[in-house]
Simulated scan of single mutants.
Amino acid sequence: MSSPLRTRRLWIVLAACCVLAALVGAVVRWGSAGPAPRAASSAPTTATVPTSAPPTTPAAVPPPAGLPVITYDPAPKGFPADPEPAGRTRTAEGLHPKSNLGVYDAPGGTPLAFLAPTILGVPVTVPIVARSAGWVAVLLPSANRTIAWTPPGDWDVTPLRDQIVVHKGSHTLEWYRDDALMRSWPVTLGAKATPTPLGRTFVLGRSSLVGDVYAGTDVFALGAIPDDPEAVPAGLRGAHIGIHTWYNDYTLGKDDTDGCVRLTKSGQQLLLKEIVPGTSVVVVD
C-alpha cells in the first residue's frame, strides 16, 4: 500500500502532465487556425533600415575662358591654405595636366585659374595632397603653402617615391626614398632678411644657369617663391626658391642666401640624377 507522501507526489505529476497536454493542444489548434485577425493598419509591419546614398562627385562649374593661366609669376589669390603646411607624410602621387586644367577653391567651388601642362617649357607635375568625392587637391605652383582643387579630367597620375626634408634648425637637407633615409647634407639657408620659406612645396623643374657660382650644375626650381619678394635683390625678383650648389662650401650651416637652399656639389649632382619633377620638399624649423 502506497504511503500518503507517495500518493500526493503521484497526484502532482498527473496534474502537471494534464496541464502540459492542454498547452500542447492549444498550440496545435492556434497553429492550424492561424492567429486571430488584426485590424487593418496603414503602418508598415516591418522596420525599414535606412541606407546611406553613395557619395557623389560635386559638379564642376566650367571655368571661363578668360581665367589667368598659372605661370612662373606669383599665382592668383583666393586659393585655400595648405591644411598641413609642415606635413611630413610623403606625397606618393603627382598630377600632370594634359591640357589647360581648371583649378578651384574647393570641390564643386569656384574656378580661379588654369594649370597648364608646362611652365616656361618645363612639364608640370604637382603633388596630390588630398582627395574628396572624386576631386583632388594639389600643391599650387608659384605660391607658398597653398593648394588648389580639380575635378576628374584631362590629367595623368605619376607615382612619386622621393621626399626632401630641410631642417632650418640644424641646417640639414635629408633625401628619403620610399620613406627610407638615403642621404643627408649640411646646407646654407636664407639670411634673416630673406629667409627660406617654411612649409610644403615641390620640385617644379630644373634649369641651367650661366656662370661659375652655381658650380656648373643645374638648379632645382621649387614651386615656392620668396615670402617677401621685395626683400630680394632686384635682379632676383620674380625668381623661385631653388636648391643648388655653390662655387664654395664656406657658408654651409649658416644663413646666407636670398632664400634658396645650397648644398655641396656632389650632393647636388646626386639629387639631379635621382629626383623627378613633382617630388615634395618640406622645410621645417
Rank of each mutant, 00 (worst) to 15 (best):
P76Y: 09
R262T: 09
N100K: 07
I12D: 07
I70H: 02
K77W: 01
C17P: 03
L204D: 06
A59C: 09
P233N: 12
G134W: 08
R183V: 10
D227S: 08
A60G: 08
A65H: 07
P186W: 05
M182A: 15
D285R: 11
L272F: 06
L263I: 11
A215H: 04
V284E: 06
A143S: 07
F202Y: 02
R131Q: 13
S170P: 00
D285C: 03
M182E: 14
P123D: 11
L14E: 11
A92F: 07
D218Q: 09
N248Y: 09
W149D: 00
V124H: 04
V126Q: 00
A215I: 06
Y247G: 02
I164A: 05
V165F: 07
G25Q: 12
W135N: 06
R9E: 11
F79E: 01
P152Y: 10
D105I: 10
S170A: 15
F79Y: 05
T188N: 07
T46Q: 14
P76L: 12
H244W: 05
P277E: 04
L181Q: 10
P141S: 01
A39M: 13
V232G: 05
S41K: 12
D156M: 07
W246P: 00
V122Y: 03
H167S: 15
V61T: 14
T125H: 04
T71Q: 07
P55T: 12
K265G: 10
S32A: 15
A59L: 13
K192V: 14
S170M: 08
S207Q: 13
D285T: 12
R6W: 07
G267H: 08
G66C: 05
V282P: 05
L173W: 04
R88S: 11
T251P: 01
P76H: 09
R131T: 14
L23Q: 13
N248V: 02
T196M: 01
G31V: 14
A43E: 12
G31W: 13
N100S: 13
W246T: 02
A130E: 09
S184L: 10
A43D: 10
L14I: 15
D258P: 00
V157Q: 10
G205E: 05
W135Y: 12
K77I: 06
P50A: 14
